[in-house]
Design a protein around this nucleic acid. Sequence first.
DNA 1: CTTGACTCTATACCTAGGTACAGAGCCCAT
DNA 2: ATGGGCTCTGTACCTAGGTATAGAGTCAAG
Lengths: 141, 141
Amino acid sequence: MRIGEVAARAGVGIQTLRYYERRGLLPKAHRHPSGYREYETLTVRLVRFIKRAQDLGFTLNEISDLIRLRENDRRRSSEVRALATAKLEDIEVKINRLSAMRRALRVLVEECACEVSAPSCPIIEVLDNSSEQPAGVGAEV
Amino acid sequence: MRIGEVAARAGVGIQTLRYYERRGLLPKAHRHPSGYREYETLTVRLVRFIKRAQDLGFTLNEISDLIRLRENDRRRSSEVRALATAKLEDIEVKINRLSAMRRALRVLVEECACEVSAPSCPIIEVLDNSSEQPAGVGAEV
DNA sequence: CTTGACTCTATACCTAGGTACAGAGCCCAT
DNA sequence: ATGGGCTCTGTACCTAGGTATAGAGTCAAG
């Protein structure tokens, strides 16, 4: 698969793929004698993963960490494990905060639905407290 | 409360607050005769909300929408409701994707814990499928 | 009544994450 | 064997979201 097809399938520009390669987010592509890059289909999924992780607020460096986690499984396991655990906590926090936002928005939608004005603003209120326990406690999905 | 205190409490720079005001994310601050801005304590929470929402992958424009939702509760309710519902769906998607990442990372942490190598990579695998369920919206990128 | 910390506006600059040329080399259907 | 459409490298440019600097005014403790 050549770069244009990967780009089309993953929904990004060609430049972006080359940029990711330079950044080390994508492995150096295998090259044809002509110099053309050749990709496996896995790459498409990898790129989609990157875009989604970005949409979840991770930076490219963080995403790089996440991706690298998969290659290292066995070797240097304590180090890898520490990183995975740290990322896991970040994710828990994000989930908690999003859950809080969801709750607030649901209240808002219901209020709008029955044309009754809100007593106070749920959106900001909820986020004040409900997000600092990254131990799978609050709001399971 | 003056701008420096708000900045310190919210954990951002002074410039950032002025920037948010210019962007319309924060309401125009009330002014002293001297020209100094005066803030209520609510502003600190509002700013923290903004930073957290950013960390969850929302742009300042999207955050602006979210903030504006609270003021509009009753009037133009169908419009507000539509926006709130749309945001709610974005949030569901994010939560689903984060949950998928969490599942994948948990697998990884457990594998590392017992020193056994992974059969395949959970991280990218999981994200392929598990994120498109909230109200049949086909994730555009 | 001065001195040091704070604030004002305006403008310039910075990083992250792309995106767009320019000029050249492939590929392949006609 | 050639023209249209790929791809290559390299460099320049762009947007979002700040961050820093300059030059001037303000506040309050000593």
